[in-house]
């Protein structure tokens, strides 16, 4: 199975909606690649505009956030915008249903962790420094290392069907073979 993980980027906010992940004005694009420069470009954090061109965000392979990530519009463009930016894992307390399904349908991961575990991950970043996160789909664990806090390991539960979708490389491949 494909390996998941890498450099983590942390966004300390709940309810980030898909309009923020990729604004509707880019929905006229008919290739996924065209979404690449626009990921999270309208995001506001603590009243300030998010710098989506910052090097540490550009290098991100894993996104760690809070609850209800991906709410709002069903646009799979939100998932593709992450994908074409090299982000194949989003870790949060919870996700909006359609976004979560879109991630697994594309064969990539939306991992739900308990709030206490998310807090632990955020603590790693408190004093700056890069954090790397590895996902183990056999053991159902994420391991985060770096920052100033050493290492944190958290267990997650993944819906059995969603795991099959990841193994199959997404819902289209799975459904084409089975139905």
């Amino acid at each position: 199975m494909k390996q998941f993980g890498g450099s983590a980027f942390f966004i300390d906010r709940s309810d980030i909606n898909t309009d923020e992940i990729i604004p509707a004005k880019y929905l006229t694009e008919i290739t996924k690649r065209a979404l690449q420069p626009h990921l999270l470009e309208d995001l506001i954090l603590d009243g300030k505009e998010f710098d989506s061109k910052a090097p540490d965000f550009q290098a991100a392979e894993v996104l760690v956030t809070r609850s209800n990530f991906g709410c709002g519009s069903s646009r799979e463009h939100a998932v593709w915008a992450l994908e074409v930016n090299g982000i194949n894992v989003v870790i949060g307390e919870s996700f909006a249903r359609i976004f979560r399904q879109n991630m697994f349908n594309c064969g990539i991961l939306a991992i739900e962790l308990a709030k206490a575990d998310i807090d632990q991950l955020f603590k790693l970043t408190k004093n700056g420094g890069a954090v790397k996160i590895a996902v183990d789909l056999q053991q159902d664990t994420v391991t985060a290392e770096g920052g100033q806090g050493g290492s944190v390991e958290c267990a997650f539960t993944m819906n059995a069907f969603d795991k099959e979708l990841v193994a199959a490389g997404g819902w289209l491949a799975y459904a084409d073979q089975k139905y």
Partner: peptide, 16 residues
């Protein structure tokens, strides 16, 4: 649903 679910819906008439 998202586009992949829609795609499978168009092709197979099913959704999970």
């Amino acid at each position: 649903v998202g586009t992949t679910d829609l795609e499978v819906g168009i092709l197979k008439g099913v959704c999970a």
